[in-house]
Amino acid sequence: MSTVRELQVELGARAYPIRIGRGLLDDGAGLAARVPGRHALVVTDRNVAPHYLARVEAALAGKSFGKLVLPPGEQEKTLARFGDVMAALAALGASRDATVIALGGGVVGDLAGFAAACWMRGVGFVQLPTTLLAMVDSSVGGKTAVDLPQGKNLVGAFHQPSAVFADTATLDTLPGRELRAGLAEVVKYGAIADPVFFDWLEANAEALLARDPEALAEAIAVSCAHKAGIVARDETEQGERMLLNFGHTFGHAIETEQGYGGLLHGEAVAVGMVLAARLSADLGRAPWSDTARLATLLERLELPVALPPGLSGDALLARMKLDKKAVSGALRLILWSGLGRAEVASAVPEADIRAVLDA
């Protein structure tokens, strides 16, 4: 096993580690230490299971072990699939000291975590993210949810994991499009909070696309450090944590309007960040030069920066009004005043939002 980087999400008695390195799925003792009870249910999908499920099962030898292998894709993050996880826990006879283990990307993590939050009013939960996007974003911070036809992540709970093991060797088998989608969330941290990291990303874009192990490990560690700090300061998204949604209000609307069959989450976030930056510049909040830098970096990382054709501005705006940050039906957006300076914006005129969507 290569050098392992370890961070901590500081939440008092509920603090937990984020471990980053190659070969962590083979650390049987480390994983077993986070499964204190007799029962463990691994939730994964058909893309991930052939590569890694047997290794996790071997690490948990001696436990009463169950597994649920789901079809892949955001369209599976539903209340019906949540019911499947509940049924699997019931079939296992899972008691209150059971642990649900999420082995996969953000969809698996969100779904398994929500199930862990609800089974017997809350049981243990371990994240084993296998995509870059999940490593740097969704596996850290305890946001769990499923989607409704009306919008993304509308049913969920805050439920922190007991540990996150980010085995970067799993990125070797990650399709290129999924890797690039994860890089969008990496760019987000530079865009909202860390211009020095943004400079580093500009200098290392090609190395990241080439899956250079050191570059990827550094990008993951810096991203997780930002996420861990923000979560420790604002666990339930009352203030600062909302800034992590830069680009997401636009992005979630795109995903939902496309029926989760178009852009991947990270791709939609890339478009959303550019739209948010353009809106900020239109409103005189931020310089156009920073918007151009953001769009250029995303394009270098082979990510989309414009709305896909065929989407209605009216439909997207209606989706955005169901965003979880909205208050009394009024939109709140995450905009910026330039690189590293994100902010919550209330009462943004709908005409200005529509102008960006229609452009």
Rank of each mutant, 00 (worst) to 15 (best):
H226A: 13
D84N: 08
L92G: 03
L111V: 05
T256Q: 14
L317I: 00
I18Q: 09
V155L: 14
V327C: 01
A184C: 08
I192C: 08
G21V: 00
A29T: 14
V274G: 10
Q75K: 11
H265V: 08
S223K: 05
L7N: 05
A347H: 15
G151Q: 06
A253D: 11
A90Q: 15
A306D: 13
T236F: 07
F198K: 13
M242V: 14
A232F: 11
P308E: 00
C224F: 12
L7M: 08
I18S: 08
L111C: 05
A90W: 13
L209T: 06
R34A: 14
G266Y: 09
A270Y: 06
G151P: 07
A193C: 10
S162M: 05
H159A: 07
K63F: 00
G23F: 02
K321C: 07
V123E: 00
S162A: 12
G176A: 14
L209S: 11
A169Q: 13
V196L: 12
T296N: 14
T99H: 09
G259F: 01
E74R: 12
P195H: 15
L148D: 06
T173P: 10
Y16P: 07
L316D: 02
G122E: 14
G156I: 03
G93H: 10
Q160I: 01
N204E: 11
W288H: 15
H159I: 07
V100K: 14
M135N: 08
G251F: 03
A117D: 01
D26I: 03
R300W: 09
P304R: 01
D323P: 05
L294A: 09
A219G: 00
S280Y: 06
G338C: 10
F158Y: 12
D199A: 13
R96E: 06
H252Y: 03
P161K: 14
G338S: 12
G142D: 04
L339V: 04
A169E: 13
L357H: 01
D167S: 05
D199V: 07
